[in-house]
């Protein structure tokens, strides 16, 4: 069984704040525009059917879901659902290793 372990979340605005603190020579607004621009560029790339490859982080690609016959749960009538692409992420080696390194529950309270 898979369990969801993490309770804490980093959001986009927290990511922006944290980057802005570390790049204090850049205006906060520029960091915000940069992060939003990067995510937009990545989304654009995937919606054009292209891959994203970031060494040490991972790669994003599209997986094809073949057409299938679904059912309208309310009426029970069958509906033909056409094939579609869905985004897929494969974590890179460094990310996999770093995330797994801390998997063991820590003995000392933080």
């Amino acid at each position: 069984m898979n369990k969801i372990t993490s309770r804490i979340t980093m959001t986009k605005s927290e990511l922006i704040d944290s980057l802005a603190k570390k790049q204090s020579h850049l205006a906060c607004k520029d960091v915000e525009l940069a992060v939003k621009g990067l995510l937009e560029r990545m989304s654009q790339c995937l919606s054009n059917g292209d891959r994203i490859e970031i060494r040490g982080f991972g790669s994003f690609s599209l997986h094809f879901r073949p057409p299938r016959t679904g059912r309208n749960p309310k009426t029970g009538t069958s509906v033909v659902l056409r094939g579609k692409y869905v985004p897929h992420f494969k974590p890179g080696k460094e990310l996999r290793e770093r995330v797994n390194q801390h998997a063991a529950p820590s003995e000392s309270p933080v």
């Binding site: 979340t9 990511l15 989304s43 970031i54 982080f57 801390h102």
Partner: peptide
């Protein structure tokens, strides 16, 4: 740094939620 920040957050046990992206 953008990718490192995400990696570090995940390494520390945080989920990373980037609205509009995933």
């Amino acid at each position: 740094l953008f990718f490192e920040e995400i990696r570090a957050a995940l390494e520390d046990g945080n989920d990373v939620k980037l609205s509009g992206f995933g």
